[in-house]
Design a protein around this nucleic acid. Structure first.
Lengths: 262, 262
DNA sequence: ATCCGGTGTCCATAATGTGGACAATAACCG
DNA sequence: CGGTTATTGTCCACATTATGGACACCGGAT
C-alpha cells in the first residue's frame, strides 16, 4: 500500500490553476454533448463539481464565447469561438494524413464502416469515418463524436494499449460518466483485460442496439497508443468466423499506419 | 446617483473567474501567433500580466493539451486539443454559407483578392479568402489570420460599425498590442472616424509593404457588425478612380450578404 | 569571467473562487 | 388552483487558490 507519493516521471503536478483546469474539463464535457449540448444537471454529474461552480464557470465561458446556451432547450453547448481558435492550427495532423490511404483500402476490403478514433484527455474522439459498400452500415457515430474512454470498443482498445496503472486511473476518473452509457467500472476493467489477452477490443453490445464493434490499436514509436481502428457492423455480420478475418485485416492496417507515422 | 444596481442589459460583469478569463485571453493571444507561435516575452507584453502568471497559465494549458511548446524555437502555440474541441461544432456558420456565392461573384468582378473577416473578442479573424484573376495578388493574409481589431482595414471597418463607446474601449484594450503592427491608438481612432464619415475603411499602408486595402462592413439584423468584406491589392491598382468603383461593388456585395443572413 | 536577455521557480500574502443555503422558475398533478 | 418536485439561478462568509516580487537558471555575446 502506498501512501500517495511521487510516482514515476512527471506526475502532472503544477498547481495554481484549479479554476482553469475545471473550466477546460467542463469544455470537454460539453464537447461530448456535441451539437445538441447538455443540460446543466448532466454537466454537474459528469463533473462532480458543485452546481454553483459549474454554473459560474459555464456562464463565464458563455461571456467569452466558448459556450452557447440554446434558449429553447436550455442546454449548453460548445460555442463558435472554439472553431475560431482552431483556425490557428490549419495543418492536418500527421496521423490523419498517414491513415488516409490505408483507411480507404481497408474500408473497401472489409465492406463495413471504419472509424479512426484518437484519445484526447480522458475521452475518445472520432476523427475519421469511412463508409463501406455493404448495404447496411452503422452510421450513428459521426466524426467529432466524443465519449469517455471505456464505453466504446475503440476506448477499450486504447485503454488496453496503455500501461495498466494509467488505464485504471482513467477508468476511475471516468466512473461518474459511465452511468449514461449503461456500463460501469467493473465491466470496463474486465473488457480491458480481455482486450489485452486477445490483442484487440470488442464490444458485443455496441452503443447502438444490435451492432458490434471490433477495434485494434495503433501505437506511436514511443509505445503510446496513438489511435484505434474500428469496424462496426450489425451484429449478425460479425460472427466468430468473420470476426477473425476482420481482425486480421485491422491488425495489418494498424501496422501499416504505425510504420507511416514513425 | 445610483448605488451600484442593475444598470441596463447585461453589463457583462459576472465575477469569480479571473483566472479563467486570463487563460482564455492568453489562448487568443497565442492564436494570433498562428502556426509559428509566440515567445513567452511577447505573450507577456500583449497581455500585461506578470511573467510568472503567464508562465504558469501557459504551462497548465500545455498539460491540458491546449498549448504546445515548440522545442527548437521555444515558442508557444495553439495545441491539437483545440481543433479537437472544435469538432463538436461541425456545422458551418450561416455567415460563411451566405457569403459563399457572393464572394465568388464579387471576386471575379473585382479581380483582386477578397477577404471575409469576422470579429472575435477584440480581434479580427480572417475566415475566408478568394483569389482574383489579376496576375498580382496579395496573398500574405491567410484564412485563420488573427490580429488585434484596429490594425487592418477590416478591423477599422468593424470598429467603425460599432457604437463609438465600444470602439473606443476596444482601442484602449488593444493598445499594448498595437506596437507590434507599427500603429497606435491615436492613428486607429482617427482612421475609425474617417471610415465612419466615408462609409468604408481604408488602409493606405497595408500590413504588407506597397499594398492597400478597402473594407466595408456587414451588419446583422440587430445592427451589430457581423463581418467585414475587404479587397487588397498593390497600391497602384487602387487609385482614387478605381477606389470608387471597388467601393461600390463591395457595398453592394455587403448589402446582399446582409439580406441573406436575416 | 562577466554581463545580459530570456525563461523557469519559490513562497508569503491577499484576493479570488468556492459551495452551502436560499430564491426563482417551470412543469406536473390531484 | 395551491401544492409538490425538479431544475436553474443567485448570494455571500470564508479558506483555498492564484498572484507577482524576488531569486535562480541557462546559453550566448563580449
Amino acid at each position: 500500500m502506498d501512501t500517495g507519493l511521487p510516482t514515476t516521471l512527471d506526475p502532472e503536478p503544477r498547481q495554481g490553476a484549479q479554476a482553469i483546469r475545471r473550466a477546460l474539463f467542463l469544455l470537454r464535457v460539453l464537447a461530448a454533448g456535441g451539437e445538441s449540448g447538455l443540460p446543466l444537471k448532466e454537466v454537474v454529474q459528469a463533473t462532480r463539481l458543485s452546481r454553483p461552480t459549474v454554473h459560474r464557470i459555464i456562464h463565464v465561458l458563455m461571456e467569452e464565447g466558448l459556450v452557447e446556451h440554446h434558449e429553447r432547450s436550455g442546454r449548453y453547448l460548445i460555442g463558435t469561438q472554439v472553431p475560431e481558435l482552431a483556425l490557428a492550427r490549419p495543418s492536418r495532423s500527421p496521423l490523419l494524413a498517414a491513415a488516409d490511404d490505408i483507411l480507404r483500402e481497408t474500408s473497401q476490403r472489409v465492406g463495413d464502416t471504419l472509424f479512426l478514433t484518437v484519445r484526447t484527455g480522458n475521452d475518445t474522439l472520432c476523427v475519421d469515418r469511412r463508409i463501406g459498400s455493404y448495404p447496411i452500415q452503422v452510421l450513428s457515430i459521426a466524426v467529432g463524436a466524443r465519449r469517455p474512454l471505456g464505453v466504446s470498443s475503440a476506448g477499450i482498445a486504447i485503454l488496453a494499449a496503455l500501461p495498466a496503472q494509467e488505464s485504471r486511473r482513467i477508468a476511475a476518473t471516468n466512473e461518474p460518466r459511465f452511468a449514461g452509457y449503461r456500463t460501469n467500472r467493473q465491466t470496463v476493467l474486465s473488457e480491458i483485460a480481455d482486450a489485452r489477452r486477445r490483442g484487440y477490443g470488442v464490444r458485443e453490445v455496441g452503443l447502438v442496439q444490435g451492432t458490434k464493434s471490433i477495434s485494434t490499436w495503433i501505437k506511436t514509436a514511443g509505445g503510446d497508443p496513438a489511435a484505434a481502428l474500428t469496424v462496426s457492423a450489425v451484429r449478425t455480420r460479425l460472427g466468430p468466423r468473420r470476426e477473425q478475418e476482420v481482425v486480421e485485416t485491422l491488425l495489418k492496417a494498424a501496422y501499416e499506419v504505425e510504420q507511416k507515422i514513425r
